[in-house]
Simulated scan of single mutants.
Amino acid sequence: MRHDLWAPTLVRAVVALVFAAITVFWQEPSPAAGRWVMALFLVGTGLSALFLQVRLNRNESVDLGASRGIPQSYGVLYVLGGALTAVVATSNWVFVLLSAVVLGLCGITELVLGMRFRGEFPLGRDWTLCGAITVFAAMGMVLVETLGTKAELGVVGGAAILIGVTQLIAALSLRHDARAADGTAAHPSREG
């Protein structure tokens, strides 16, 4: 199972860390450019969730019950939200509203999914943490709306740093565990 989880987790980490680096080093983003960067971040995050869903679907040993399709649901919401942010959000308050709603809904969904599977699924704790961070980013974005694009992207970028690092550690751990399981399967211990 860990073979199927590490790659989508790594993709999400890379998307988050690239977005975070852009928001940290970009000193004066224009509102239009800021909307496009946020839109690309939302779409990239959504695509990583859809990639995870594809991997979960191909692995019969993963038992999430009725929750099995939830990553696909919030993945689609991220992608649609990113597209709407790029196309529809012509004013700052619409941009903040759309982004915050998408981040909030997806964050709550991921948080609930993580809390449900925290002890039984390898990504449960990571989903809980990332969901909570995403919800706080959505709230923070609304709170700094009057401060401009740099502040709005900065709040989400700060959250992206935390999510990116968390997901990177999770991906590397999953990859290590998968390789260790392969080594154990290839070389079973001999008992005398």
Rank of each mutant, 00 (worst) to 15 (best):
R2C: 11
R2A: 10
L5F: 05
A7C: 09
T9C: 04
V11W: 10
V11I: 11
V11K: 11
A13W: 07
A13K: 06
A13S: 15
V14R: 08
V14S: 06
V15P: 09
A16K: 09
L17F: 01
V18I: 12
F19P: 06
A20Q: 08
T23Y: 07
V24R: 04
V24C: 00
F25G: 15
A32P: 12
G34Y: 03
M38D: 08
A39L: 09
L42S: 03
T45D: 13
T45Y: 13
G46S: 06
S48I: 10
A49K: 13
L50P: 10
L52T: 02
V54P: 05
R55Y: 07
N57P: 00
S61Q: 06
D63R: 12
L64M: 13
A66L: 02
S67R: 00
I70C: 03
V79L: 00
G81S: 08
G82K: 05
G82M: 07
T85D: 10
T85Q: 12
A86T: 11
V87C: 03
V88D: 10
V88Y: 12
T90V: 15
S91L: 02
N92R: 12
W93H: 09
V94R: 13
V94N: 11
V96I: 12
S99C: 13
V102Q: 05
G104R: 02
L105E: 09
G107C: 03
I108S: 06
I108A: 12
T109F: 00
E110Y: 04
L111A: 03
L111C: 00
G114D: 02
G114M: 01
M115E: 03
R116Y: 00
R116S: 00
F117D: 02
F117C: 02
F117N: 02
F117R: 01
G119H: 11
G124V: 00
T128F: 03
T128D: 04
T128M: 09
L129E: 00
L129T: 01
C130K: 07
A132C: 09
I133K: 07
I133R: 07
A137L: 02
G140F: 05
G140T: 08
M141L: 15
V142W: 11
V142H: 08
L143V: 15
V144Y: 08
T146Y: 14
G148E: 05
K150W: 09
L153K: 01
V156A: 07
G157D: 10
A159Q: 06
I163D: 05
V165P: 08
A170G: 00
L172T: 13
L172E: 14
L174V: 02
H176Q: 12
H176P: 01
H176R: 15
D177L: 06
A178K: 08
R179T: 03
A180H: 07
A181H: 07
A185I: 04
H187D: 10
H187T: 11
P188G: 01
E191G: 12
